[in-house]
């Protein structure tokens, strides 16, 4: 009996010791991205007084809105333990389709038709990855190419333009303002709040974390793994369609390659927000921070008179530092144990 209580007290002590160490690590890992964000903002604000002006903040958020909206959807996919590299070419598709249908069906019909078509693509990917359990990296890589081909076929390789650019209310999504706030920002923030709640508060969100954290354990708890992943890709496609809508409405005309390469920027924002590519961690809020960091870095460096490409290099360093510190905090060691 004394042995058992001895055991019990050992247990408590051991647990406390390991918890406090872990907790410090986790707090660092959790807040690291916010700290980095704050440091950046302060540094830029000192360097350039214009940086924190309302106009500038609006312009940064507005230009980040397209990447941001897509990043919201990709957050779901990444937390569920998968990747989506097809969002860029899918966005080109949405943009081209809605611009084309605008003149053929009118905007009121064009928008739902475009959403339906984009969702079909998302459903196809979701089926392949969720139900057939194919590797998401390769599937979405293939879809990147296939959707690009589909877009070119659809447009016949031509740029797409709206005939009457002045007379359409369609421009409201990209160019309008409501309550003094640009509409793209409103869309981004409302969607972020909505999806943030879905992920953090609803049973579905809980399932996404469970499936990404440990798919086998989720299955052993009766959670429909395939369906959960499938829905994540539907959400991603919905976000992509929304981004395509904003893009089309902003420019009212577009090339076939408008979204090319965006998938990697989107993924960078999500990773910067701290979502692990292994799945099971990340939040919508942190993704928004990730998007804003990318946006403000770009803007801040420009305001400081640096060329746009400096932003690329800075982003590279930040992504690696962010992920590195995150896993370093989790393993309790800065350097990897790889021999």
């Amino acid at each position: 009996m004394s042995d058992m209580s001895q055991n019990a007290s050992n247990l408590r002590e051991g647990m406390m010791a390991s918890m406090s160490k872990q907790q410090i690590g986790r707090v660092l890992a959790k807040q690291g991205i916010l700290i980095a964000f704050a440091v950046f903002m302060i540094a830029f604000a000192i360097a350039s007084p214009k940086f924190l002006s309302v106009d500038n903040v609006f312009s940064v958020v507005r230009s980040s809105a397209i990447i941001g909206v897509m990043a919201l959807g990709v957050t779901f996919v990444v937390i569920s333990g998968n990747l989506d590299l097809s969002v860029g070419s899918m966005m080109s598709f949405s943009t081209i389709v809605v611009l084309d249908l605008h003149d053929k069906l009118g905007p009121a019909l064009a928008i739902p038709a475009m959403f339906a078509m984009t969702l079909c693509l998302g459903a196809f990917i979701g089926f392949l990855v969720g139900y057939l359990r194919l590797n998401s990296l390769i599937v979405t890589l293939g879809m990147l190419s296939a959707i690009h081909g589909l877009t070119l076929t659809y447009s016949g390789g031509q740029n797409m333009d709206i005939a009457d650019k002045e007379g359409t209310w369609f421009s409201v999504f990209g160019q309008g303002t409501a309550l003094g706030i640009p509409v793209p920002i409103l869309i981004f923030l409302i969607l972020a709040a909505l999806l943030g709640m879905v992920l953090a508060k609803t049973p579905f969100g809980r399932k996404v974390y469970a499936v990404g954290g440990n798919g086998t354990a989720a299955t052993f708890s009766g959670i429909p793994r395939a369906r959960t992943v499938f829905y994540c890709y539907l959400i991603s496609a919905t976000c992509v369609a929304t981004a395509g809508l904003i893009q089309a409405s902003r420019s009212l005309g577009s090339q076939n390659t408008v979204g090319q390469g965006l998938e990697l920027e989107v993924l960078a924002a999500v990773i910067l927000g701290g979502a692990s590519l292994l799945g099971g961690s990340g939040t919508v809020f942190k993704t928004v921070i990730g998007v804003l960091i990318l946006g403000f870095i770009q803007n801040g460096l420009l305001l400081m008179g640096l060329q746009f490409y400096v932003q690329f290099v800075v982003t590279w360093i930040i992504i690696i530092l962010a992920v590195w510190l995150d896993i370093a905090a989790k393993r309790g060691k800065l350097w990897s144990p790889i021999a």
Binding site: P203, Y209, A210, G213, N214, A217, S221, I223, G280, S281
Partner: peptide, 23 residues
């Protein structure tokens, strides 16, 4: 491997099978 989502907190693990019913 099968029983727990190790990265999740204790409460969420415990209620995982009935998360649809606890609304």
């Amino acid at each position: 491997g099968q029983g727990l989502v190790l990265g999740m907190n204790c409460r969420d693990n415990m209620t995982l099978p009935q998360v649809d019913d606890l609304k």
